[in-house]
Design a protein around this nucleic acid. Structure first.
Lengths: 223, 223
DNA sequence: CAGTCATTTAAACGTTTGCTTAAAACAGAT
DNA sequence: ATCTGTTTTAAGCAAACGTTTAAATGACTG
């Protein structure tokens, strides 16, 4: 086992993952070259193909590192909320909280990679043409279905399509905000404990929950 | 002046712009090569540099083609609404309508490029690191400032930061929805007149306006 | 018809891309 | 010290990238 230098932490594999996450978040998957990544990770280009097989699998590995835990935590929190509210429907804001909070937690695990991961998550959600790795797809779909059903129960007066769309909108709010999280700095100035980030998510939940509570108008079934 | 073939419409310059718009929207700016574009436009690679100077300036040209007219129309509609409501504040939903409607109109100008342009607009708004062309920046900032002020007047009880953030969120909803407009098809099935698209934007306005109407909670000034 | 201009073209430029190779460096066990 | 398996490395591959060049083509004018 090699001793690591002070400024080059952890194993090569991890360093590559960290560098890739940072650069992918900043500039997108296609625009970042393996040499950009290995340059920042202080590793050899060939190391990527040795550890991951290809650039595409590197992307998958970066996504898998966070997506699994986040989606599992979402399911856990939703189940917890459903238990707390017994048979009655879970309020929309509680559902949205179960959806967003795990992202905040994941971001705040490592304060160093905080902003980096913000952008990366935002990019995953907004980059289109990008396919989730097969390994995380099932859990993701399962999660989306569970949240859709919870929201339908919370707003039984809304049509299914409206619920789906408003879920979609909430996704957009979160994704867009994470992507442009530089502007988040003016908020999370007070670093320790990061009250700013949590406040921001509360703010998002406020906005989306209110959007969900809007009555459905116009002729229904037209869609 | 050359006569154009039936399947190769318009001038080379326009064909390149059309192809670029379609491909950029579909796959992003960096991932699309000049050869992809000229291949689809049935033109020579060198034609891009002849007509536009560089790939970057091509991107600017595609953006400028739509951004100017849209932002001007936004200003016009906002001014119109302010006139309609005299001294009293313009309702949030009217402001959002003035912001979104010009996009719908621009999209529907040419039904062929409809979906193409949807994605392109969405990408412009979400792609980060991308800089608006200098030629459209001033108008864009002017537009954003005018809408921010109108919204502050519509909700004088909200803090300035909250108004800014909720504007940001609304931006995210629109951007995300445009980016993933494939899913829009299930809606705009009935083609002629495209009632689907207009309905979708009404739906978005409903959601965002309701979000704006949410009371501000939590300790203020903390930010 | 020759001359002038704008446009289009094929070919090539030097870089950079993702990926492979074969040898070197390393760790741990014998 | 020697073998074994893993990891890292420099060097190089073909392909694709944005851009440039110089010649060919086209459409008008004198």
């Amino acid at each position: 086992m090699t001793e690591r230098a002070a400024d080059v932490p952890a194993e090569t594999r991890e360093r590559i993952l960290d560098a890739a996450e940072a650069l992918f978040g900043e500039r997108g998957f296609d625009s970042v070259s393996l040499r950009d990544i290995t340059g920042q990770a202080e590793a050899n280009v060939a190391a990527v193909n040795y550890h991951f097989g290809s650039k595409e699998k590197l992307v998958d590995a970066v996504v898998e590192r966070h997506a699994g835990p986040i989606n599992e935590e979402r399911m856990r929190r939703l189940a917890d909320a459903e238990e707390r509210f017994e048979e009655g429907p879970v309020p929309v804001s509680e559902i949205l909280d179960a959806f967003l909070r795990p992202v905040v937690d994941e971001i705040m695990k490592d304060p160093v990679t905080e902003r980096v991961f913000c952008k990366f998550m935002g990019r995953i959600m907004s980059e289109q043409g990008y396919q989730l790795p097969e390994s995380v797809k099932p859990l993701f779909q399962q999660m989306a279905a569970a949240f859709a059903q919870a929201l339908r129960m919370a707003r039984p007066d809304l049509s299914d399509q409206t619920v789906m769309w408003r879920m979609h909108y909430s996704f957009g709010v979160m994704s867009h905000t994470l992507m442009h999280s530089e502007k988040l700095e003016q908020i999370s100035a007070g670093r320790s404990g990061n009250p700013g980030l949590e406040k921001l998510f509360d703010h998002i939940i406020e906005f989306c929950a209110a959007g969900f509570l809007a009555p459905e108008q116009g002729e229904e079934g037209q869609w």
